[in-house]
Design a protein around this nucleic acid. Sequence first.
RNA 1: GGGGAGAUACCAGAGCGGUCAAAUGGGGCAGACUGUAAAUCUGUUGGCGCAGCCUUCGGAGGUUCGAAUCCUCCUCUCCCCA
Length: 376
Amino acid sequence: MDFRLTHTDTASNARAGVITTDHGKIATPVFMPVGTAGTVKAVHIRDVDEDVKARIILGNTYHLYLRPGLNILQQAGGLHKFNGWTKPILTDSGGYQVYSLTHRRKMKEEGVVFQSHIDGSRHLFTPEGVMDIQRVIGADIMMAFDECTPYPCEYDYALKSMELTHRWLDRCVTRFNETEGLYGYRQTLFPIVQGSVYRDLRIQSAEKIASVGADGNAIGGLAVGEPIETMYEFTEMVCNILPKDKPRYLMGVGTPANILEGISQGVDMFDCVMPTRNGRNGMIFTKNGIINLRNEKWKADFSALDPEGTSFVDTAYNRAYLRHLFVAGEMLGPMIASQHNIAFYLWLVDEARRKIEEGTFASWKQAMVTKVAQRL
RNA sequence: GGGGAGAUACCAGAGCGGUCAAAUGGGGCAGACUGUAAAUCUGUUGGCGCAGCCUUCGGAGGUUCGAAUCCUCCUCUCCCCA
């Protein structure tokens, strides 16, 4: 994997670049739609590609390992062949499931024992095992196995957890280096900064991660309930330590405003379930603000879903119709809203990129941050 | 024509003398959602000058300290038999 910076903003830490993988180029900043179980929920892969114009999507190690399982994925020839997505794929390691499935897992030095949320069966995830699974899935970008700490988190726990994540990282790197991809293209490994919301821990972790010399670096453990200003503060701090010539990935973030702030702090890659999950729940994001499609005020509003939107759904359907679909519980509603939202997120990062290239990013961002957070 | 059952909030439907502005479900309205245990979850749903008061349980009257609950009549529904 290769990363080339093309523009650097002078009024902020924003930058534009291009990541090159064996499955194609990724212009940054980029938003990566989440496709946990091998599907960007409710959206056809053709639309994720041609309509939304996604450049890379996510998959999840834990979920794909449980279902459909490694045997099927390997027989298929990897996730790309299995789901028909021909562009790059990044897989999360299951580190987030260590956080979200707290009551179904047990931490050990060796790894984590998970109880499957599907059938209750027990499975051991080790750093080595997680590397092997991501080899089978065939992700272009593999993530290190970490522990995403919750918020709030006691200092002592955050310290121990961070140290464990670092030890696991070393084991991930070792395993990664002694294995290779199964399907004829290259894979790369991103390490993840942890350290909760403690400055000294975050600094220590960022330095450790920077020392690995990976093709790209991720910031984890944020957007887990801490005040938004805290998230910005730590993102900026960590970005200043991570290498400038490698892409930075802020995991799990976020709202449109969060993403713009992240870009201005020097983040290049984002992923979040928000556009798809909130879309399924009737909320759409637009450049003018947020719309809750179930609200009565759209009942007889026959104007386009998003007159300025880039997806075909934005002008093919009107707001009153979308409201009807959600109120009636029709599945087309979640499909349209999801597609609109990820198209909007991609538009947002593309527009940010254009503004960075023009040198007008900072002022544009300032105005945009308030606009996109308004409720319509 | 004869016999029986019943009318409760937007709908369905509990309640059968005080703890009832009235269970529960649906519907309505609003909110939440950040590396997806989510096509999920939460709140609210008579009115007001809202820790209190006012008007509600088909209609009118009555019994009682007190009625959605008991009695009388009326109106209307549904079921069975002719």
